[in-house]
Computed example of a mutant assay.
Amino acid sequence: MAERILLLNGPNLNMLGQREPEIYGHETLDDVVTLVRKRATDHGLKVDAVQSNHEGDLIDALHRARGTHLGCVLNPGGLTHTSVALLDAVKAAELPTVEVHISNPHAREEFRRHSYLSPAAKAVIAGAGVPGYGFAVDILATHHNEGH
């Protein structure tokens, strides 16, 4: 059975392609999942994809992934800037986690420039658009293959 990564997308990411396309582009969440699954397959991995607009659902998914997944690709959406609880869940899951942002939060409003999640992340990819998700999979696969 192939090893698995968790793809976790937070609030409003179900609206990709519709919400503020001048910032987030025209690709949809389905496009993101397709890209991540393709990239994971290239590395011999499988993907469990979860999107929720509810913080507790994201926390529960991280808890379930502990010990069963080799890592997590996480776009926490707006929870990036507000959620200590999600940070604690990332730490509790003990999974290498790559934080992904489609836009560059540092080029946006001041409040978006702080991430509660970044201190627990293996890497942060911001401003690369949807392809950033693929880079995140590459990072997790490389990390795993190096035996870390």
Results as ranks from 00 to 15, higher is better:
R19E: 12
E20H: 12
E20A: 15
E22G: 06
G25S: 03
G25Y: 00
E27H: 05
T28C: 05
L29D: 11
L29G: 09
L29K: 06
D31W: 10
D31I: 01
V33E: 15
V33M: 05
T34E: 14
L35W: 03
K38S: 15
A40E: 02
G44K: 07
L45Q: 00
L45H: 02
V47W: 13
V47T: 04
D48R: 08
A49G: 12
Q51A: 10
S52R: 07
S52Q: 10
S52H: 10
N53I: 03
E55K: 01
E55R: 04
G56Y: 04
D60R: 11
D60C: 11
A61V: 00
A61G: 00
L62H: 02
H63Y: 04
R64K: 07
R64L: 14
A65E: 02
G67Y: 00
H69M: 05
C72S: 02
V73W: 06
V73N: 11
V73L: 06
L74G: 02
L74D: 08
N75T: 00
G77P: 09
L79M: 11
L79P: 12
T80Q: 07
T82C: 12
V84G: 01
A85P: 04
A85T: 01
L87W: 13
D88I: 01
D88F: 07
D88Y: 00
A89M: 10
E94W: 00
P96C: 00
P96D: 02
T97V: 15
V98F: 06
E99I: 00
E99G: 02
V100F: 09
V100T: 05
S103V: 01
P105H: 09
P105A: 13
P105S: 11
A107P: 05
R108H: 13
E110D: 12
F111P: 10
F111G: 08
R112W: 09
Y116E: 11
L117S: 07
K122S: 09
A123K: 06
V124H: 07
V124P: 07
I125C: 07
A126V: 09
A126T: 09
V130P: 13
V130K: 12
P131L: 10
G132R: 03
A136L: 13
A136I: 03
V137P: 11
A141L: 13
N145P: 05
N145H: 14
E146D: 14
G147T: 08
G147C: 10
